[in-house]
Design a protein around this nucleic acid. Structure first.
Length: 644
DNA sequence: TTAGGGTTAG
């Protein structure tokens, strides 16, 4: 869009506004100042309409200050109505500068894709002789450019800023930097910051640096963002919160927690946003102790427990293995929204507590909350993990027919997984082939895992062909497929697959498990020898092997799908990362302590049966979160009833 | 009339 192009706003808008002409119930005295103060305190759209009518009736609308306040109340109050405000503006014979700024700002902040409207108005304002852009005009126009990521227009506006001499104004500067940062022009953004005469300790300088950091994160330039943060002479709580939330949102969970700890060490008080920002990182890492600390901190510091912080806590307790506590937090919340319900239902599903997940879904419906498509992902996931195939089909149909929600690939993913786990491979295949969205890696992975579980290579290979055509770069799917072939002894195909992976530079995520002891996260990969207590860990693993064999453990070497000697297979199995993490947990905690393990991949069959025995032999509850769900091992039994 | 937040198939 070119700001200098001719724009005929008048023809594009409703020229005959219907303005109400009611008498207000309580008629304020008709002086400009009392009308303005009534407008400022008006609470509803109805009040506003009546005061507007009064202004017209008494002729006071002709007073530019009154008209400006009618406009401001229309578009920037809590009960804003942009279309109404636009009609008010178009009625003004000669809007003053304040009114232009008000409407430009309202468009730049609105959600309905209106930033371009802001720019159109600004270009009209430039041609207007009675109102010149001022220091209040530019922040909004620049914000509109930033939101539309319109660099060409942004540069033109910035040109006007310099021409009219507003470039030293703190608000204008902030928004100029933000405009460049949002458009990805970090060089320009940084130049402006460096050129500014602000003291590095000043509040404005902190804001500018926060914006630059945000810009680097948008571009995925995490290291640059971190460097700017580390070098800041002064940091506000918003700077710290920004780093935590951006790290967590980009998958840098450990880094998010690290910043959170550093903030604490430097004596910066956490606030509500800090907690909401760090909790998702804690959830993903399964760092229960830290999560509990955050919960206690919120209570001790009387941080408001609303639906948002409540959802984050429910999610944290669910993903960190304490589902009962998640339920307790949920039940204690003063307010719940659709996300809170989704989080609770998804959490119960993750723990295999399908019956309760479905009960909560019913409660949600009874409470009058309209189910979102996300909550159905939780419901279908619950059915899938509990083998409730008929219920799953029925909920899928209800979602489509009663709630009129279009199934997304995630819903099909749940259905394929559900049918596959239950051994209904042909029905699952039919769904993969006929579903209206293109199957992705995840769908194939669920399907291939089901074929492997049920030993059906024929269907597996048929679908595998489609998967190969995807030219996927997802390492896990290749490994799954090659494992499927390996379980059939098809070593030639395995070799071919490995070669394809090499050619496409596909890498598999290495299996990795972690355990938190005294607030420290300890990470282990398969056959890991890097931990400072490696010697003790491996002595423990040897002891475990002996005790398990005494208890009747037979290694399930069919799980090791490499073409290697049986004996080597046995040792490979015993050094899987989750077993190493458990050995470390056993030597680092007192007897009877529950162990919480998180694994990035799905737990293998041999580990699953070993951990059942370990829980019995060592008298420990062991809670393992793998890629798809929780397993609660106790006294030789797992909560998943071996259906996973 | 500048900056910050929660759920989602394997």
């Amino acid at each position: 869009m070119n700001l200098n192009s001719n724009i005929n706003i008048a023809t594009s808008l409703n020229p005959s506004p219907c303005l109400p002409l009611l008498s207000p119930p309580t008629c304020p005295s008709s002086s400009p100042s009392s009308l303005i103060s009534s407008l400022k305190t008006s609470k509803t759209l109805r009040d506003l309409h009546q005061l507007h009518a009064l202004a017209i009736k008494t002729g006071l609308f002709g007073d530019p200050l009154v008209a400006a306040e009618v406009l401001r109340s229309s578009v920037l109050s809590e009960h804003r109505d942009l279309r109404y405000g636009r009609r008010v503006f178009d009625q003004m014979p000669e809007p003053n500068c304040f009114s232009w700024n008000t409407l430009i700002r309202a468009y730049s902040e609105s959600d309905g894709g209106h930033p371009s409207e802001s720019l159109l108005l600004f270009s009209r304002m430039l041609l207007c002789e009675t109102a010149r852009p001022n220091r209040y005009t530019f922040p909004s126009v620049l914000k509109a450019c930033a939101r539309a990521e319109a660099i060409q227009e942004g540069k033109q506006v910035h040109g006007q800023v310099i021409k009219l001499g507003w470039d030293d104004d703190a608000f204008v500067l902030t928004n100029s930097v933000r405009m460049y940062a949002c458009c990805g022009f970090m060089e320009d953004a940084r130049k402006l910051v460096e050129k500014s005469s602000l003291s590095p300790e000043s509040e404005s300088s902190v804001v500018l640096h926060n914006i630059v950091i945000d810009g680097y994160f948008r571009l995925g330039m995490v290291e640059e963002a971190r460097q700017v943060f580390d070098r800041m002479a002064n940091k506000s709580v918003i700077s710290w919160n920004g780093m935590i939330s951006k790290f967590a949102q980009t998958g840098y969970f450990k880094e998010a927690i690290c910043v959170f700890r550093k903030m604490q060490l430097e004596g910066v008080k956490h606030n509500y946003v800090t907690l909401v920002s760090v909790l998702p990182a804690i959830s993903r890492l399964g760092a229960l102790e830290l999560g509990e600390w955050v919960h206690a901190y919120a209570e001790k510091n009387v941080i408001e427990m609303d639906d948002v912080l409540g959802s984050a806590l429910v999610d944290m307790y669910s993903k960190c293995g304490n589902i009962d506590k998640a339920v307790q937090v949920f039940e204690g919340l003063p307010k719940r929204n659709p996300i809170t319900w989704s989080t609770m239902i998804g959490g119960l599903a993750l723990h295999g507590r399908a019956g309760e997940a479905l009960d909560y879904f019913q409660r949600m419906e009874k409470a009058g909350v309209v189910p979102s498509d996300v909550v159905f992902i939780g419901v279908l996931n619950a059915c899938s993990h509990a083998g409730l195939v008929d219920e799953g089909r029925s909920y899928f149909n209800r979602m489509v027919n009663i709630y009129q929600l279009s199934p997304r690939i995630e819903h099909y993913g749940c259905m394929v997984d559900m049918l596959g786990r239950a051994g209904l491979l042909e029905e699952a295949e039919e769904l993969v082939v006929n579903m209206p969205v293109k199957p992705d890696d995840v769908i194939y992975k669920a399907f291939l895992a089901a074929c492997k579980k049920h030993g059906d290579a024929e269907i597996g290979m048929r679908v595998a062909k489609c998967f190969m055509e995807l030219v996927s770069h997802d390492g896990d799917s290749y490994v799954l497929l090659s494992n499927l072939c390996a379980s059939l002894g098809e070593w030639d195909t395995v070799a071919k697959l490995r070669l394809t992976m090499k050619e496409l530079e596909v890498r598999k995520d290495p299996g990795c498990s972690w355990i938190t002891i005294d607030g420290m996260i300890h990470e282990f990969v398969v056959e890991d020898y890097t931990h400072p207590r490696t010697k003790e860990i491996y002595l423990m693993l040897e002891e475990m092997a002996v005790k398990l064999q005494e208890a009747g453990y037979v290694p399930d070497t069919a799980q090791v799908l490499l073409n290697i000697e049986e004996e080597k297979k046995e040792s490979t199995l015993f050094y899987h990362s989750e077993k190493i993490a458990i050995a470390f947990g056993l030597i680092s905690t007192s007897s009877g302590t529950t162990l919480h393990i998180v694994k990035n991949l799905r737990i293998c069959g041999d580990c699953h049966s070993s951990i059942k025995l370990i829980s019995k032999v060592y008298g420990r509850r062991i809670i393992v979160r793998d890629r798809s769900r929780f397993h609660h091992f106790e006294d030789g039994v797992c909560s998943c009833n071996d259906y996973w």
